[in-house]
Design a protein around this nucleic acid. Structure first.
Lengths: 210, 210
DNA sequence: CTGAAAATAGGTATTTCTACGTATTGTTAG
DNA sequence: CTAACAATACGTAGAAATACCTATTTTCAG
């Protein structure tokens, strides 16, 4: 770790976690110039002080970590953002890649991983934990079934509780087409030949659909 | 806070949180004699040292906080257990009440709340945060609709993905009866008059059904 | 360019879910 | 006790989901 006193702003809505993070960063020799329990306050502080690094919880009241990062990018700040999260969900990861997120760490990771991430990001590189990707591959049941884009689109609408008719209207295609897609999806997912099995599956796996 | 050096064992699978908790307890003057990232190790340590207090995460690998508490009770240990959790779900709270859990705190609570909880529990009383109860009342959508026991039973089976026929067979009643119950449930819950609306509702609210 | 895969659309039939009735039997609180 | 409620059961009907077909048009890689 660089011995300079790098400044950092942190935010997490869980006080215990915020304290743990604060202490940990202090141990590493970083100077925590702000610790907040919501995204809005953190953003204000980041805009004021423009520190080289901000470590933010993904899920926070007022503003999420992603939203804060988006605003930082919009404002052209040089502050690098590492996101902390409980979830290794693909959708967040994809959103993160589109913004100026420099790192993405799961809260359950060892402190060592966090230290590595901070080193990497402060040196100007990106850090996306390998475990994060492993997890994605394993948890993304969709990748195994090679659903087509249309099938995936329809699956998401089913997960949102839409009926075949609604889906057809929304996508400007025939109900029969939707039927066919449903049928294909059921085959690919190897679902029971039972009523509503697709709906039930979609409802239970909606988190993995993005 | 009592100035005695009370001993305490802690466990949480999130390292940052574990560190935060450790530091916080140290600040309070407690002696943390063990910090673990899974329930099993924590239980072993509790059995060995029998401290007056253990603060455990509800969700951990190997053993959950509840399971550790259950074993402590089974072994007749005098160690009091405070559970930390992210979730204010009714079922966990109810389980907690049945065991020798002395406290139940949401992780998002202020450190002050945690301090109060520790004081209370170490003085021999129970601490279940008021906010926890508030949350329960509001989140428990079922209590508002006064579903009958049969209706609730059927609703749970629907949430488990069972069809009317399966439910009828399982409960030894006619399909028509199940139909009628479904109909009544839909009325009470004020659901849309749309196909599968009950199924979708049940799938999305299965956590609140116990 | 050509062939494979995907998306589109339709037909027919079955099963399931739901609505909206009625009606009988227990149970239980006032 | 009795009136209200819950649980039970049945009928009819329509909407929706699914299965199992065929068939055309697009798209895209080799």
């Amino acid at each position: 770790m660089d011995k300079q006193r790098h400044q950092v702003i942190i935010a997490d809505d869980h006080p215990i976690l915020l304290k743990g993070l604060h202490e940990f960063l202090a141990d590493l020799g970083l100077e925590v110039i702000g610790a907040f329990h919501n995204g809005k306050d953190a953003l204000d502080a980041i805009v004021d002080s423009q520190p080289p690094l901000a470590i933010l919880d993904l899920e926070m009241p007022e503003m999420t970590g992603l939203e804060v990062a988006a605003d930082c990018k919009k404002l052209g700040l040089k502050t690098r953002v590492i996101l902390l999260t409980l979830h290794k969900e693909l959708k967040f990861y994809q959103q993160a890649k589109e913004l100026n997120i420099s790192g993405y760490i799961l809260k359950e990771f060892a402190l060592n991983d966090l230290r590595k991430a901070i080193d990497t990001v402060l040196s100007g590189q990106e850090f996306f934990s390998e475990k994060l990707f492993e997890g994605l591959k394993k948890e993304d049941c969709l990748s195994d079934h090679s659903l087509t884009p249309s099938e995936l689109k329809i699956l998401r609408l089913i997960a949102d509780g839409h009926s075949t008719k609604e889906i057809a209207e929304q996508l400007f295609i025939s109900e029969r087409t939707v039927d066919k897609h449903r049928s294909n999806i059921i085959s690919k997912l190897n679902l029971e030949k039972k009523h509503n099995s697709l709906l039930i599956w979609a409802q239970n796996n909606k988190e993995n659909l993005y």
